[in-house]
């Protein structure tokens, strides 16, 4: 058991309603879990709680049986905006977390380079961030997130600000990288298609909490036009929308 959420609730001071109400979830090591739900259902709050950027009002979050008390490099986050530092170039950005951790320069560079190679941006290592396209920036952000070997990778709609074509390419690449590295991932998205494409399990959320969890039993690599893929997509889409119209 890698990550466990026990009766986690979150209430913000300025609103009476619960953003999250008694969430229970377990994520296994090496599992890819997607959370879907329409906007405002608290999926980003869930991620912020796990990241330690916010504290739950009630309940507890355990990572390898240790309670989560604040942000840390064992739960690295990849944001919707790339959040790369514009004053550093590509490789310096990828090295940032390792520099913070005090890893020596030589090892930092080697690891950063191998991760940049994985996302196909090795030749761009000395570029400034503003010289890259949106898709390339998210690739650098992915490389940066991967270098720290965190226990779990938290991804908050990382491809949703990109155009469709680029975001499709990136999710293909993410799938390839995941198959190679088998990292534990929690991936927030509003796109059911993206969730079915990437996830071992899809968690369906509504303002009331987790309404369903669907295991996607499809071989990887997956294809969007595959008959069973479409079935999964419809099934989950219905679950997401059911709650909307009630």
């Amino acid at each position: 058991m890698s990550l466990v959420l026990k009766n986690v609730s979150k209430v913000f001071e300025d609103s009476k309603e619960d953003v999250l109400n008694e969430i229970n979830l377990e994520i296994e090591k090496g599992e890819f879990v997607c959370v879907v739900g329409r906007s405002g259902c608290g999926k980003s709050t869930l991620l912020n709680l796990i990241a330690g950027l916010e504290k739950p009002t009630e309940g507890e979050i355990l990572l390898n049986s240790c309670p989560v008390t604040g942000p840390g490099s064992d739960r690295i986050v990849m944001f919707q905006e790339h959040a790369l530092f514009p004053w550093l170039n590509v490789i310096q950005n990828v090295e940032f977390g390792m520099k913070i951790a005090g890893i020596p320069q030589k090892e930092r560079e080697e690891r950063a380079l191998s991760n940049l190679r994985m996302v196909g941006l090795e030749e761009y290592k000395d570029y400034a961030i503003h010289q890259l396209s949106g898709g390339m920036r998210q690739r650098v952000a992915l490389a940066r997130a991967l270098t720290l070997d965190s226990e779990i990778l938290l991804m908050d709609e990382p491809f949703s600000a990109l155009d469709k074509q680029t975001s499709n390419r990136l999710r293909e690449e993410l799938q390839e990288i995941w198959v190679k590295t088998k990292r534990t991932v929690l991936f927030i998205t509003h796109s059911v298609e993206e969730a079915v494409y990437l996830a071992d399990r899809v968690v369906v959320m509504s303002p009331a909490g987790i309404t369903d969890i669907v295991s996607v039993e499809l071989e990887r690599p997956r294809y969007v036009y595959d008959e069973r893929f479409v079935e999964y997509r419809h099934k989950i889409l219905e679950k997401v929308e059911e709650k909307v119209y009630r």
Binding site: L53, P71, I76, F79, I100, A101, R144
Partner: peptide, 10 residues
């Protein structure tokens, strides 16, 4: 977001 990113990188 810069601060958040750095925080989650430890």
């Amino acid at each position: 977001i810069y601060k958040k990113a750095a925080l989650t990188m430890g």
